[in-house]
Write a protein that binds this DNA or RNA. Structure first.
Length: 417
DNA sequence: TGACGTCAAGATCCG
DNA sequence: CGGATCTTGACGTCA
């Protein structure tokens, strides 16, 4: 089984993607941004390999206007070497990547121009994978599209359009249930007509199952039949409902308890699970640690180094509790560890705790700071205390100083994000 | 016409 | 002038 995340990393240097607006999309600017983004992608691939994160969704924004006439560059050739090098890393490290064009790529629209653009968009995504020379286990996930007042006709149009697609795209395309229009049952029917795999999304299913009483595990087993040898392992999307938010809104982090409850119901635990969550790689590492066969506490200590100041800011009590928890080096208390972190992060910030944590971090930077930086820190902190300034300002200054003083230990800290 | 989702660019404000 | 904060962009469908 592989656990993965989508598009962006949290807290990893040099992995940000740039974009260009239409009116500034000159060849020169596009070239700069594409080169920058490929570099960022390569850094993310390197990071994933190193962290043993084997599943990753590449952002559709990799090439700005990649499927639009606005971008006239022959980017496949210009950056051919970069693509092949990244592709090699993906293959050599046994990573599985995917794409997920958004809600604006609609194959079943009654408007032919919309469909044409959607097909161009699939060609764009497929072209990147071909440039990387990676096989058909690396997938492109789409939703079915709109209903337009007649679902039966809309489904027919999807199937007809699918039949016209280029063969390599047919080999990569997989389809997912959505949260409003197409249930997993609808998608299964379409998948059978097209002979392509289905991605089950648990939260979409919760939002859109029209009274269907069957369990998530049932549907995961059911859609497993759509995955053939050439498609690779079955893949599902997993996220959790944010309490007190709109149905379908997902949580900031994957809570370890509910995830393990879900995991235990799986008919086959060798499938790939894409986490759809705000904190991205953070949750992925959490789940990998929860499922790891290697139950060495060093894994948790490494995590603690990144979390500790963020926890200290929210809850000194949980900070102390985690320190106690990690004392016995023969244990692997992964669940309690993350639950204490989750509980702390869900606490509202108390000013005194935040000031304490900021001063704690400052303790590592004080000696290397010049007078004006010291004064700036005191000023920012006093302002925050008097409700005249934001905690964000204090943290941004601390991060800047950590970077200036090359305190890698601090730069990696989740305290800043 | 706004909401949906997403996140960086662009614009503007502040000291 | 730099940094912080806000608004816009880019896409299609639905209510």
């Amino acid at each position: 089984m592989s656990i993965g995340y989508a598009c962006l990393t949290v807290g990893i240097p040099n992995t940000d993607l740039k974009s260009v607006t239409k009116k500034n999309a000159t060849e020169e600017r596009l070239k700069e941004v594409i080169q920058h983004n490929l570099n960022a992608l390569e850094n993310m691939i390197d990071y994933n390999s190193k962290q043993n994160i084997r599943l990753y969704r590449i952002s559709s924004d990799l090439i700005p206007f990649g499927s639009s006439p606005v971008n006239t560059l022959n980017w496949g050739e210009i950056y051919g070497e970069d693509f092949r090098r990244i592709g090699k890393k993906i293959k050599n490290n046994d990573l599985r990547v995917s794409f997920h064009p958004g809600q604006y790529t609609v194959l079943n629209s009654p408007h032919s121009d919309v469909v044409e653009r959607a097909i161009e968009d699939l060609r764009y995504h497929n072209k990147i994978m071909e440039c990387m020379e990676i096989d058909f286990t690396h997938k492109i996930v789409v939703h079915i599209g709109g209903v337009y007042g007649n679902k039966e006709e809309a489904i027919k149009r999807f199937i007809q359009t699918f039949r016209k697609l280029d063969q390599p795209i047919k080999n990569r395309l997989i389809i997912e249930n959505d949260d409003r229009l197409y249930t997993v049952e609808d998608v299964l029917g379409i998948a059978e007509a097209c002979s392509i795999p289905v991605v089950f999304d648990n939260l979409h299913h919760t939002a859109n199952h029209q009274g269907d009483p069957k369990t998530e595990a049932y549907w995961i087993k059911e859609v497993n039949n759509t995955w053939r040898e050439m498609d690779g392992k079955q893949k599902v999307h997993y996220s959790q409902q944010a309490s007190s938010k709109r149905i379908g809104a997902h949580t900031k982090t994957i809570y370890i308890g509910p995830f393990l409850d879900f995991y235990r119901t799986l008919p086959d635990t060798s499938i790939d699970i894409m986490l759809e969550v705000k904190d991205k790689n953070i949750s992925t590492i959490k789940i990998n640690n929860a499922l790891s066969i290697d139950k060495n506490i060093a894994r948790l200590e490494k995590e603690w180094a990144r979390y500790k100041y963020a926890v200290l800011e929210k809850s000194p009590e949980n900070y102390q509790a985690i320190r106690q928890l990690l004392k016995n080096k023969n244990e692997y208390p992964v669940i309690q560890f993350y639950q204490l972190i989750e509980e702390a992060m869900d606490t509202i910030t108390f000013e005194g705790n935040a000031v304490n944590a900021a001063q704690h971090v400052w303790g590592y930077l004080n000696d290397g700071a010049i007078e004006s930086e010291k004064r700036a820190f005191e000023r920012n902190l006093t302002k925050y205390r008097n409700n005249e300034g934001k905690l964000r300002t204090v943290k941004n200054q601390l991060l800047k100083l950590a970077e200036k003083q090359a305190k890698d230990y601090l730069i990696q800290s989740l305290y800043f994000y």
